[in-house]
């Protein structure tokens, strides 16, 4: 039993170690907003003629048609749709590593695109909780990896305490940490919920 648990702990731990490092690093970034993360970002601009993009007053449908016509992958934030007085149309397509600001002319025949290419640390950060990106089928496997990692951490917590409880090493400091810090954390969570 112990040997089997130990093997699963090691195997899944090695599989999920990169995700845990990304999770820890990106969480620190959420809290401290490290400026070095943005290093390596640059922008390129390009233009393209569009064939037969049917106009519509529905901003979402128009943005999606133009996205498909330009063959861009990613989500389209609805709150960034903007129509100009001359009926030109602007929107944005977002995905990890790329951000496209698109402007379409009033006749819907021409698009100007400002493409921001993000650096590797921004991309690593976006793997914290990446879902399936529209047009990028390989990204759905990242969400499976995320699920495996989440389940592994829940398992590792239980199995780790089990291994420690079976050994005779570090008993006093182990109990102090488990009861004091982890127990105190639980009380902090309950307190934050009730009175925070």
């Amino acid at each position: 039993m112990r040997k089997t648990l130990s093997k699963i702990h090691i195997w899944l731990g090695l599989l999920c170690a990169p995700y845990m490092i990304i999770f820890g690093f990106s969480s620190l970034h959420f809290s401290h907003d490290f400026s070095f993360i943005d290093a390596g970002e640059y922008t390129v601009s390009w233009e393209r003629q569009l064939d037969a993009v049917a106009d519509t007053t529905d901003d979402g449908a128009l943005a999606e048609r133009v996205r498909l016509a330009l063959d861009l992958d990613g989500w389209i934030p609805w709150w960034l749709y903007k129509r100009g007085d001359d009926n030109s149309f602007r929107f944005q397509v977002d995905r990890p590593a790329k951000r496209y600001k698109v402007r379409v002319n009033p006749a819907r025949t021409h698009a100007s695109v400002e493409e921001a290419r993000q650096g590797p640390l921004v991309v690593l950060n976006s793997l914290h909780a990446l879902g399936s990106v529209p047009g990028k089928p390989f990204t759905k496997f990242w969400s499976y990896y995320t699920y495996i990692s989440v389940l592994f951490v829940l398992f590792a917590g239980g199995s780790g305490v089990y291994f420690w409880s079976r050994s005779r090493n570090e008993t006093l400091i182990g109990w102090l940490l488990l009861a004091g810090v982890s127990g105190g954390s639980l009380l902090l969570m309950i307190f934050a919920w009730i009175r925070g």
């Binding site: 990692s149 917590g157 305490v161 400091i173 940490l177 982890s182």
Partner: peptide, 17 residues
């Protein structure tokens, strides 16, 4: 490995759950 595991167990489990 042991100390971070035991000390931060509750918070780390909470974040993953």
């Amino acid at each position: 490995h042991l100390y971070t595991g035991l000390g931060l167990l509750t918070f780390v489990l909470m974040y993953f759950f």
